[in-house]
Nucleic acid binder design. Sequence first.
DNA 1: GGTGGCAAGGAAATCGATTGCCTAGAAGCT
DNA 2: AGCTTCTAGGCAATCGATTTCCTTGCCACC
Lengths: 323, 323
Amino acid sequence: MAALAGVSTGTASKALNGRGALRPETRLRVQQAAEQLGFVANAAARSLQTGRTYTVGMITTDSIGRFSIPLLIGAEGALGAGQMSVFLCDARDDPIREQYYLRTLLSRKVDGIIVTGRRTQARAPIGVGLPVPVVYAFISSADPSDCSVIPDEADGARRAVRHLLAVGRRRIAHVTGPEHHHSATVRARAAADTLTAEGVQPAAPTLYGEWSEAWGRQAAGILLSTGADVDAVFCGSDQIARGLVEGLQGAGRAVPGDVAVVGFDNWDVMVDGCRPALTSVDMDLEGIGRSAAELLLAKINGEQVHGPRARPCHLVPRASTAV
Amino acid sequence: MAALAGVSTGTASKALNGRGALRPETRLRVQQAAEQLGFVANAAARSLQTGRTYTVGMITTDSIGRFSIPLLIGAEGALGAGQMSVFLCDARDDPIREQYYLRTLLSRKVDGIIVTGRRTQARAPIGVGLPVPVVYAFISSADPSDCSVIPDEADGARRAVRHLLAVGRRRIAHVTGPEHHHSATVRARAAADTLTAEGVQPAAPTLYGEWSEAWGRQAAGILLSTGADVDAVFCGSDQIARGLVEGLQGAGRAVPGDVAVVGFDNWDVMVDGCRPALTSVDMDLEGIGRSAAELLLAKINGEQVHGPRARPCHLVPRASTAV
DNA sequence: GGTGGCAAGGAAATCGATTGCCTAGAAGCT
DNA sequence: AGCTTCTAGGCAATCGATTTCCTTGCCACC
């Protein structure tokens, strides 16, 4: 390539990278030669010299899925703008795989690492004293000095409850996932606290179950059979909400007429598939991914970034709570 | 590291890679030193020398989503066993982005590229005369000499129809996605041909619409309003099937009592969320991803692999077609 | 006309690991 | 004893780009 342009490789490098003192005409000649030959610089050689790889690793601790994807897309967006690529590693909740991938990423000298997972509960740091910056997205690190970007789930629950109050409901129940699940308890507590703060009693004790439509259906039966006077239900997930809506309708209750329902996740197939369409809380996963990537870039550039950062949720009102 | 073990870097390299003639004791000493220092070889330097990166690129032409993920997981599984990593690139259906990512992958000297997409329709080859092997997964290349791994959708449709016939249905209709969508037409034709081959008339003309639950609901209304005598419906997707089931039930028809329903995709949230649980055709996307990765590895190892390969589907019977 | 200053581009060291070649020492053979 | 043979491990070239330093040539100025 350098030969075609009649210059040395050193000069060619300068020409393509905009360095050094070169006549504009020479620069142009090199660029044209590169174009003509379809020349692309070898990234390995470059990174060997510069120490930068323009690559970040993304380790999903749980399997890749509904939560990781928007995070990935958000991160990719923020990094792609800076011409960086993403190495995706799926540790499948296996610490051995996780450490293996960590070694791989380190051997590839990635500029930084984003750690994500399917649940928001804090996890052990992926490593200590690592030679590259690390940011946790969605999941948070148990070490509070680590940088984590997490959704403010309590905020989401608050918004859901306030919305139900705002549309005139007062007999509000909460149906959610397993009691041992961090998200379930955080959201349940925030929902209860919000009700209390507004001077309203919960219409029923929180119902813990699974994150499934089947549980939502079952929960509808339970709520109705206890004879509780319920005019709204805040659900811990869209799947539960959808099952609950079907359960209520099957028992002859109208949604939102008799009972208004709010879900959580704003998962398109659920909120749109549900009749009526489901009001839901959106955690803005893509925004979390983007934000995590931006923080990682800041760390790569030497800025000091520490501690967890909670991002607010927003509520998307739909027919299931229409007045 | 070499210093700690008291050998030269060349010897250390041989020790860690199992090359050269070394005393077992020396080899061990080096390995222990590497362990102690947490030494990991610099991948860039290695690949500069060996020409191999142990990395493959995966370009999803459409956005990352429900179809790409299982493909990715399958590919990752097959490649991870060979210690290779995956570079994920989301071209978002934008040719510019696609070419940009292609350049990036080439500059990183990936050992091979897997191209995937959200639809099975053949696409233009991503490049000609590329210096690395390419395999298409799920999507296929318009160039028949390119290596593509695709689901045999016609086979899937055949299995669905035969299953309905096997459980005693004879008045079978087909509801599917947009007529301009490759998958929709392929499946519809295969369904019709299978019926014909079995000497059965379709109960109604194929209904084309969208890939959504809403369309499924609407289609239920259309089928019932035409007064067609239908005892089974084969749907082009699980979402359509679920909407259709709800539509039928809303009109007082029993599933599978009055009408049996089969979906397509075997998408867990749909087939499990549906009441009754949905019989569906599984394209085995993970298997396609794995298969594509294995073919790519074969090509990387210099084997000649050409042409498209269709993989059979399988049917997963559930309550919606129970006898 | 000699010298200083500047512009343009070349030469060579460098990054870190791999690997072919070579050498020193030990062992085996006659 | 002297020679060959073998083994273990060191030396140095190599991969491809970047970057520092240095050279060359040109111009201006005194």
